[in-house]
Design a protein around this nucleic acid. Structure first.
Lengths: 403, 403
DNA sequence: ATAATTTAGATACAAGCTAAATATATTGCC
DNA sequence: GGCAATATATTTAGCTTGTATCTAAATTAT
């Protein structure tokens, strides 16, 4: 701190000045957020919930109506709420759920799925596509994704011009700015310039994000982590990645590699053949994963274990213990309230839950609650939809709705 | 989402309504923040930096002057900036650094240190105290802390009534609300109701925080992690704890136990005699720590190693490798840009840095930069001061300055 | 002295919110 | 059917905080 001003200063403002318009943005967002969460809202309800006066609430609502985000219901048009209602009837506002749509995309190594959702998050169109091989050119990968998007939009009965935001999840580290850290070959598969491509093709705003991070958003929104602010989702299948939320925010780290646990084997010094990265493969081999050679073997291990077969039981015990160690590690660094197991192994994980839960207190002083994801295959697309909706809601007054 | 409103709703506002006063708060904070960083600021400088117009800047400054936070310098009173300056002389504002003070406290198991700092963070008073034993009653522990605070204030030439905020760091998990998770005996040593006690005694606002977390704040402010947003500080000495910042925010986790790595031994399955918790003890035994039985042994191990003694070299190699594994674990979960080693082992850690850095790429795909803290003993108090100042600056317009 | 330059101060006004008074529509009761 | 009670809507005035623009002041350079 030298005299007067330090050298090498930049003369740009550090933060944007707060203008009166900021107030409207903030208040409109909280009003819109409340209307989104109820089916129908009256002015009085909005007053009590937002703390604004009636005049302000009405002004915000008229603003939102003018911009197309909400609409006013006709006076006692149809279904009124039950019970005796005295006094002058309230004006009723509802979200214009079809004012625009969002796209949530799950881009895996072998397949991709796109989901179209309305402004309340209801999925109304869905389509998948497969990649010819893992090592295809970027343009081809983009093309497969783009076609899945178009088909999903067609299934939803809408078009690309109604898309307000797109969120895509990939199996690689993505930093806070949406840049892919492609320092490993596998990761570079996904560094195909999707953002620019979809922007050029359709004018879409594309938010790129790590798939496990989106899974965490999805679980918190519509999965078993509803309302939990400190949440970790283990996405186990082809690979093992963790999506970490702390205090309701996603963690990225410097290069977006927070939660990338592929290297943990080495760190633990137990040898990679027994490490965490191989856990998913072991599990798959034991019948949990998609590459397991059919459901027969999966079912068989669990059936054998249920029947008391020692070999099958040993496999399950081994997997349970490694899983417990992974979760305990996470608990040490992050201390989440809850850990959700999702991805391909989720279905079979349910049977292991009691064992894992029982082991945890041995490994950590702060054992989290452990659950299994109910979202199945759509765990990433659900999170992607949530991410896109978050963006839309945060920028509602800045986005143009096309009627 | 039922019809109209979900059951069990609370009728309180979700968030406070944004009023025009919010604008002033935001803008005043950014003006004050800039003045705090510059020695002397003119209106024009504040305009370019904050993006506000002159009228607004002046209004904010008058406001801040009236409240006692800043003062206006007399026209060309003394030292003017050098160089030819045309035009009408600018009004010059400076921070009233002595308008109030903050206390930063480090509460260890055996000793405590309190530091008094002015509003720019310059430490102007400091005092320590020792606890008679680790298992003393809560009242006695509070009394020792309180006396250290009084002596520090006396050394600074000020009194308790000028203290605007107090931040204390303890070696236990503390959640976001300042509550201590005392599920372990060692941790419960620190759960002594300090907050309420100092509030009752002096009317102070006390912010309780984990010591490693404060160390992270300190390193980012005045240590080797200046300006790094994704930063982990390993505080190794009596125990091993990590303070984690992600995106410039401290991580707490559900119960404040984020970064508590005491249990990692078990998780890693290598056996606790070789585990991480014992690392600090090993290190101390090898001469890094305070309990090492004097500097002689510390110096000796490093001297022997420098002289090529195989036993000494083996000890250092072993410690380097374990340290590298710990850091790689952190890198997997958090992906920080930088890891700082602080606490009692810091001094001796410098010699190990090259070895640790060389090992890292073997264990993680995203190796962070590793440095050693330059803050020495004051790493926690520096962070505590920063924490208290953050609170003061965030609440500047709500705090009453007593003249 | 005068011009150029830089900053200060004053005036007009726009956006947004609150508060208080007034108006309106509905229910329920006599 | 008329009237009170009730809940909501609407209007009006005023406050805070901004911006934009114009004019005045103080200093240096010519």
């Amino acid at each position: 701190m030298g005299p007067y001003l330090r050298g090498g200063q930049d003369l740009k403002p550090t933060a944007a000045a707060a203008t009166p318009q900021l107030l409207r943005r903030v208040n409109a967002q909280s009003v819109l957020g409340f209307i989104r969460d109820t089916d129908v809202a009256t002015g009085t309800e909005l007053m009590t919930r937002t703390g604004l006066t009636r005049a302000s609430v009405i002004a915000v609502c008229e603003d939102l109506i003018r911009r197309g985000w909400i609409r006013e219901l006709d006076a006692r048009d149809e279904d009124q709420p039950p019970g005796p209602r005295k006094g002058r009837p309230a004006r009723r506002f509802e979200l214009n759920t079809r004012a625009g749509f969002v796209l949530g995309i799950d881009i895996g190594a072998a397949t991709t799925t796109a989901a179209v959702a309305d402004l309340r998050g209801t999925v109304i169109g869905r389509a998948s596509g497969s990649f010819r091989a893992t090592d295809i050119p970027a343009a081809e990968r983009i093309d497969v994704v783009d076609r899945a998007c178009r088909r999903a939009l067609a299934a939803a009965g809408t078009g690309p011009e109604k898309v307000l935001a797109v969120s895509a999840g990939i199996a690689a580290p993505v930093d806070r700015d949406g840049k892919v850290l492609a320092s490993q070959h596998f990761w570079s598969l996904f560094d195909v310039g999707l953002r620019a491509a979809l922007q050029d093709l359709h004018g879409w705003t594309v938010l790129l994000e790590n798939d496990a991070n989106l899974a965490a958003l999805g679980e918190r929104w519509r999965g078993s982590g509803a309302g939990v602010d400190d949440l970790v989702v283990l996405l186990a299948g082809e690979r093992l990645g963790a999506g970490v939320m702390e205090s309701g925010r996603l963690l990225h780290g410097r290069g977006g590699a927070a939660g990338e646990m592929g290297y943990l084997d080495l760190v633990e010094g137990v040898g990679s053949s027994d490490g965490i990265a191989s856990l998913a493969r072991q599990w798959s081999a034991a019948g949990g994963g998609p590459a397991a050679g059919g459901e027969a073997s999966a079912r068989r291990v669990f059936e054998d274990a249920a029947a008391g077969d020692p070999a099958a039981l040993a496999i399950l015990d081994r997997i349970s213990e490694r899983m417990a160690r992974v979760i305990a590690s996470v608990a040490s660094f992050i201390n989440p309230e809850q850990v959700v197991i999702g991805g391909a192994v989720a279905e079979s994980a349910a049977a292991l839950l009691p064992g894992i839960t029982a082991l945890l207190p041995r490994f950590t002083a702060t054992p989290p609650r452990v659950t299994v994801s109910p979202l199945g295959d759509s765990i990433v697309t659900v999170g992607a939809v949530r991410r896109a909706l978050d963006y839309v809601e945060a920028n509602a007054l800045g986005l143009a709705l096309r009627p």
